[in-house]
């Protein structure tokens, strides 16, 4: 098992300040919930190395990834996978080449990377789409392809940003089940950002509630439900706070 994360950091973006404390035991799945603008995506960007820290540090499996004072490992050298809300499959590459992309950057020869990509797609039931362009697959298929694309690199930490937000409501349960299955067999840790409690319930071992750049509460979903420390937590968990507000 990998994915021991110790991340305590601050990110400043103009007026907005995020103070996050994300500590994971290996192999755990953490859901980060909160309203729009709570700082969920910013937290993922900091972990992925897309946004530099203003203070604090990120250590993954004993390796220092980012320290506001001491050093910064760029995103391409972090054992971190990121799946964006819109899956951002490269439109000019076939599905197979999309998945092979992250293997090629790791130095695999082209034929080998493509072969591995095909095998991975087959394993996830996506073998029919290898030669298609991203524009020729459905939203759900694209989300699964993006997941495979991130997994073939065997990251220690997998970041999923609203993996189901762009999916039609009636298709969500099935895809949620698929992701659950993927995460069950994934040896590392994962962080799933979502504003949908159903995602947190289905996918995560623990939940962090974020609001206005601060952690309101953290714990297993049952504990949060039973003993909310903040009125917003109970309202969020009851699904009573839809996407209010906007921001980073």
């Amino acid at each position: 098992m990998t994915g021991t994360l110790e991340a305590r950091f601050r990110v400043r973006r103009g007026e907005f300040v995020l103070d996050a404390e994300l500590v994971l035991a290996p192999g755990t799945v953490l859901a980060v919930v909160g309203r729009n603008g709570a700082g969920k995506s910013t937290a993922l960007a900091a972990l992925a190395g897309v946004t530099p820290l203003s203070a604090g540090r990120i250590v993954l499996d004993g390796r220092l990834l980012d320290d506001a004072a001491a050093g910064f490992v760029p995103p391409e050298r972090r054992p971190v996978g990121l799946v964006l809300q819109q899956p951002a499959l490269f439109p000019h590459l076939t599905v197979q080449d999309n998945v092979a992309f992250g293997l090629r950057t790791a130095g695999a020869p082209k034929a080998e990377a493509r072969e591995q990509a095909r095998t991975a797609l087959d394993e996830h039931g996506l073998g029919d789409f290898v030669d298609r362009r991203p524009a020729q697959v459905s939203g759900g298929q694209a989300a699964r392809i993006a997941l495979v694309r991130a997994l073939v690199r065997r990251p220690a930490l997998l970041l999923l940003d609203e993996p189901l937000a762009a999916i039609d409501a009636e298709l969500r349960p099935a895809l949620r089940g698929t992701i659950r299955g993927v995460l069950d067999s994934f040896p590392g840790s994962a962080i799933v950002v979502t504003h949908d409690i159903a995602d947190a319930e289905a996918l995560a071992d623990e939940v962090v509630v974020l609001d206005a750049g601060r952690v309101l509460q953290r714990g297993p979903l049952g504990v949060l439900r039973a003993e909310p420390t903040d009125p917003l937590v109970s309202r969020l968990l009851a699904g009573a706070v839809p996407n209010a507000g906007s921001g980073p």
Partner: peptide
């Protein structure tokens, strides 16, 4: 070009140069 493609490429191990040559420029 949507900057998320560059973010995706970086998290897939592509250096800024490789991202530019293989993702941003083709797009």
């Amino acid at each position: 070009v949507d900057p998320r493609f560059a973010v995706a490429a970086a998290t897939l191990g592509a250096s800024p140069w490789a991202t530019f040559m293989h993702v941003t420029l083709p797009l």
